[in-house]
Design a protein around this nucleic acid. Structure first.
Lengths: 145, 145
DNA sequence: AAATATCAGACCAAAAAGGTCCGTTGGGTC
DNA sequence: GACCCAACGGACCTTTTTGGTCTGATATTT
């Protein structure tokens, strides 16, 4: 019932990017330094986010990452699925592979009913929302605990 | 976004008890054998559930555990909170201790809104429901994956 | 050609989860 | 009273997951 630290880092990095003027390209090192995150770790996460089309990467002179799309079109759900795995809101609450419609686990029906609400709620929340501080101003710099 | 295996075991054990006639006292070993669960591990869980008033323990001749209350008055939420910790549906989605109303994390507001729905849904689901097979008949014996 | 940061994967470390073991306790039986 | 058995609690070990580092190669502009 909790998300990994990697999700937190990734989200923090993306929000930082979303707060720059559109089209800004920043290096992982820069973002990591600004947000006080482990840089080499964030690099992996950013790489993955680029592969999934949330970020766009650049090499050569204008190197670094930029948001691939408008922040209001990037949902938090999507981001979390990229980082935690695509089945984040689809899999069994006990993590059983064998759990399915045909072979439901003990909480299958209940969880199936609740899951979409969680997913929808996070899908409706966009990077722009987070960046705008609708979450809470200054939250980024206090995420070290 | 998932529950521990211990919760699964505990739940399975409780449901097995709920399926006996009311007042039946069974030893951990018996329950573990019936459900094919690691017995010594389940023992710890049952101990905790007894301390929290879900089970009642007996020593001496009529030894073992019985449900402390009627299965229709034991909610799955309560059970999970006993096993996973009382703050299961209260804590930060990122697991941050520092996250609070005053110092909200990035997803604080969203998660705060979703959380109660999850908790309520599981509170409404009782042991009796599970035992009655409203979850799905035979789910118990297939929980080994 | 030099410089620099992306990129992928191997690799290592720390922490959490899963599971065992063992000594003690306490009621019941003989 | 001695003995039996499982509850009880904590210490302890193992495995898995997570968090994090490093290395070598690649791409792109100066």
């Amino acid at each position: 019932m909790k998300l990994s630290r990697e999700s937190k880092y990734g989200l923090a990095g993306l929000i930082y990017l979303a707060r720059q003027r559109p089209g800004t390209v920043l290096t992982v090192k820069t973002v990591a330094a600004a947000q006080v995150l482990p840089g080499t770790f964030l690099a992996k996460t950013f790489g993955r986010l680029a592969r999934h089309g949330v970020l766009r990467s650049h090499r050569g002179r204008r190197r670094g990452y930029e948001l691939a799309r408008n922040p209001r079109e990037i949902g938090v759900r999507e981001i979390l699925e990229d980082i935690e795995g695509p089945d984040l809101f689809a899999r069994c609450i006990f993590g059983s592979e064998g759990c399915s419609e045909q072979r439901p686990c003990l909480l299958h029906e209940r969880w199936k009913a609740v899951r979409p609400r969680v997913a929808e709620s996070l899908a409706a929340l966009t990077l722009a929302d987070c960046a705008a501080g609708r979450t809470a101003p200054g939250a980024l710099s206090r995420m070290g605990d």
